[in-house]
Simulated scan of single mutants.
Amino acid sequence: MSSLRLRLYLLLLFPIAISLGEASVSSSVTVTDLPAFREAPAFRNGIECSKTVWSPADRTHNPSIIHISMTLDAIYLRGSVAGVFSVLQHASCPENVVFHFIATHRHSADLRRIISSTFPYLTFQIYHFDPNLVRSKISLSIRRALDQPLNYARIYLADLLPIAVRRVIYFDSDLVVVDDVAKLWRIDLRRHVVGAPEYCHANFTNYFTSRFWSSQGYKSAFKGRKACYFNTGVMVIDLGRWREGRFTVKLETWMRIQKRHRIYELGSLPPFLLVFAGDVEPVEHRWNQHGLGGDNLEGLCRNLHPGPVSLLHWSGKGKPWLRLDSREPCPLDLLWAPYDLFRYTPLIADS
């Protein structure tokens, strides 16, 4: 087979390999498999912004700084980079945004290099998350991606981030922000530990097994609370109250119960519902237009929920970068595409 024909053959095969998505994810991702990205433009503060500098050695809380946490890994890196780019592009004070990335030790040096070269002006830290901390507590769910240890890192933010960081926004790696993130940052949590959009019309019973609902002891966890579903891919968290209330321990307790008695089917979400549902500070729905990735099995196209939009979230099986590469995007995937900094390498040279 000639070199040109081989390249054309690979070009035809590439979308097929991409469309396999999570089913073909291998744990043996190498450094050469990490994607390359174009350098993002520099985003500067407006004149109304107070100039401030953050250091991990700071011991006091600085209210002018917006702290955002996301995970970094080889599989979802393209989504994380798009998410960061979207935040900076729409922020009124982008230089006051600090990113706290959570990654496993594997590839951490390469991930740091990629973030530094893509966002040369970004203030960020990368924290090492030990998968062994949670691996024995994870039970199989309905989708492999939900069982990855890094998916549970949000439970440990209060332990991973510096003590002076008393509030953080947690973002999943499959979303883009299309509004000034300062508006989300400034919400009043009042006495609550977590703020997030709630969806009280959702059938809450579907998130737990019949074994859970048949046990008076288990379902009493919601006693005295009007429990509503909320998506943990967008949360504003009071880390000070989290630490004081030892909420990591409470979440781990439910994970251990799940290992023994199988009371739910969905990854890291149900423990959050068990601990926080009905005790969440409601946030406008515009801050999590979720479900754009379809359900957890087929990942079919979906439309936006009615109402204004500040954040688009491709929760579910379908991810916009995979569908775009497969040349079978959903209509809303085209709203994600402008934030994609992925650097395509042509398979056929121009000369």
Results as ranks from 00 to 15, higher is better:
Met1Arg: 03
Ser2Ala: 11
Leu4Arg: 08
Leu8His: 00
Tyr9His: 05
Leu12Phe: 14
Pro15Val: 12
Ala17Gln: 05
Ile18His: 03
Ile18Phe: 01
Ser24Trp: 10
Val25Trp: 12
Ser26Cys: 09
Val29Tyr: 04
Pro35Thr: 13
Ala36Val: 09
Glu39Ala: 02
Arg44Phe: 15
Asn45Thr: 13
Ser50Met: 08
Thr52Leu: 09
Thr52Cys: 11
Ser55Phe: 11
Thr60Lys: 14
His67Trp: 05
Ile68Glu: 04
Ser69Thr: 01
Thr71His: 09
Leu72Gly: 03
Tyr76Asn: 11
Phe85Gly: 00
Val87Asn: 00
Val87Lys: 05
Glu95Tyr: 05
Val98Phe: 00
Arg106Gln: 11
His107Ala: 05
Asp110Ala: 15
Leu111Ser: 09
Ile114Ala: 07
Ser117Lys: 14
Thr118Ser: 12
Pro120Cys: 13
Leu122Lys: 10
His128Gly: 04
Asp130Val: 11
Asp130His: 08
Asp130Gln: 03
Pro131Ser: 14
Arg135Pro: 02
Ser139Asp: 03
Ser141Cys: 06
Ile142Ser: 07
Arg143Glu: 08
Arg144Val: 04
Arg144Glu: 09
Leu146Met: 14
Gln148Trp: 06
Tyr152Asp: 05
Ala153His: 04
Tyr156His: 13
Tyr156Ser: 12
Pro162Cys: 07
Arg167Leu: 05
Arg167Glu: 12
Arg167Ser: 11
Ile169Phe: 09
Phe171Trp: 10
Asp172Pro: 01
Asp174Ser: 05
Asp179Ser: 01
Ala182Gln: 10
Trp185Pro: 01
Asp188Ala: 08
Arg191Gln: 12
Gly195Lys: 01
Pro197His: 05
Cys200Gly: 09
His201Phe: 14
Ala202Ile: 14
Phe204Ala: 12
Asn206Val: 07
Tyr207Arg: 03
Thr209Gly: 12
Phe212Thr: 05
Trp213Thr: 06
Trp213Glu: 12
Gln216Lys: 07
Ser220Cys: 10
Lys226Pro: 01
Cys228Tyr: 11
Phe230Glu: 13
Asn231Tyr: 07
Val234Ile: 06
Val236Asp: 13
Val236Gly: 13
Asp238Ala: 13
Arg241Val: 04
Arg246Asp: 09
Phe247Leu: 15
Trp254Cys: 07
Met255Ile: 11
Met255Val: 06
Arg256Asp: 10
Ile257Pro: 01
Lys259Asp: 02
Lys259Cys: 09
Tyr264Asp: 00
Leu266Thr: 13
Pro270Thr: 02
Leu273Thr: 10
Ala277Arg: 07
Pro282Ile: 09
His285Trp: 10
Arg286Ser: 15
Gln289Ile: 07
Gly291Glu: 02
Leu297Gly: 00
Arg302Ile: 06
Leu304Cys: 01
Pro306Arg: 12
Pro306Leu: 11
Pro308Phe: 07
Val309Met: 00
Ser310Glu: 07
Gly316Cys: 02
Ser326Val: 03
Glu328Pro: 00
Tyr339His: 06
Asp340Tyr: 10
Phe342Ile: 09
Arg343Val: 01
Leu347Cys: 12
Ser351Phe: 13
Ser351Val: 07
